[in-house]
Design a protein around this nucleic acid. Structure first.
Lengths: 152, 152
DNA sequence: CACCCTCCGTGGACGCGATCGACCGGAGCC
DNA sequence: GGCTCCGGTCGATCGCGTCCACGGAGGGTG
């Protein structure tokens, strides 16, 4: 991870569809060199995926909710997690410090679907209680932040 | 937005670097036709961007926090928002229903940086209080969910 | 019913990009 | 000094992106 790798990561975070030739121009290397570097970033786990970012409303997911989960003292955390993983509406899942073990970001089409999701979550073995907040609007999301070189 | 458009969106959400030729094979059209459709999805706002998804630890952002913000009754929401927007650590910003007007997802390198961020947030005019939860681990994030055709 | 217009696709052509292999130069080590 | 390894450039080949001309389906109109 030198300065050129950081530039490449930053360029690809801004636009994942840049060609290798274009990346090469931006960082001042040849296209094959860039190709090899990006390949190593991918296989080294630095770049996990390339994703198109989609307007959720356009694909029928107009309702965003953030849901805190308090675990049952008797439950098995891994089982709970596995159950969450089966629910496609849950786009993100963080294991948190604090009373609420998990924080979930879920997206559904309607409030009715959200209700059903919350019911399913509440019924999940190991879940003691849920607390749901509805996002009225998303101001921005997953904004890439500039990479600063490791303070050495 | 017909079935082919939905397939294209789904394919690109899974891998934004697929070539037009590959997309064309997957959906059974020619490459120019796919090119045009994808172009319309982009300019129509359905596809907002293409982003490389990066392992945050690899770029020195090992600490993820979720921060609820309670607004001052006297403050101007737009000004508060603008202040948040200036802070690159805030990757996502949702305007919420409930006591906490905003929920922020922030990523920083160290707990010390998180402390500084919280101090800056607390001092922001219009912010009455903050409540921070630290993500011990991210189980998954921004998982694309399968697109279901609008129930017509 | 014939006609035309529009939309959306195909096929062909051409230039550029992706990618492979051969080669090369500097750093580190005997 | 010379070997080896790493990471780069260069050149060639093949496939892809992209532009353009053409064509067929569908709908509105005289």
């Amino acid at each position: 991870m030198d300065a050129i790798d950081r530039s490449l990561v930053e360029l690809l975070r801004g636009n994942a569809r840049l060609s290798y030739a274009e990346l090469a121009r931006q960082v001042g290397l040849s296209a094959p060199a860039v190709h090899e570097r990006v390949g190593k970033l991918e296989s080294g786990g630095v770049i996990r995926a390339y994703r198109a970012e989609v307007e959720p409303e356009a694909i029928g997911l107009g309702v965003t909710a953030l849901i805190g989960i308090v675990e049952d003292s008797g439950g098995d955390t891994d089982d709970v997690l596995e159950t969450f993983r089966q629910m496609p509406e849950i786009e993100s899942c963080y294991f948190m410090a604090g009373v609420e073990s998990f924080l979930l970001k879920a997206r559904v089409g309607t409030i009715a679907e959200l209700e059903q999701l919350i019911v399913r979550l509440s019924r999940t073995p190991g879940v003691a209680s849920t607390r749901t907040g509805i996002a009225l609007s998303t101001k921005w999301e997953n904004r890439p932040q500039p990479i600063e070189p490791p303070a050495s």
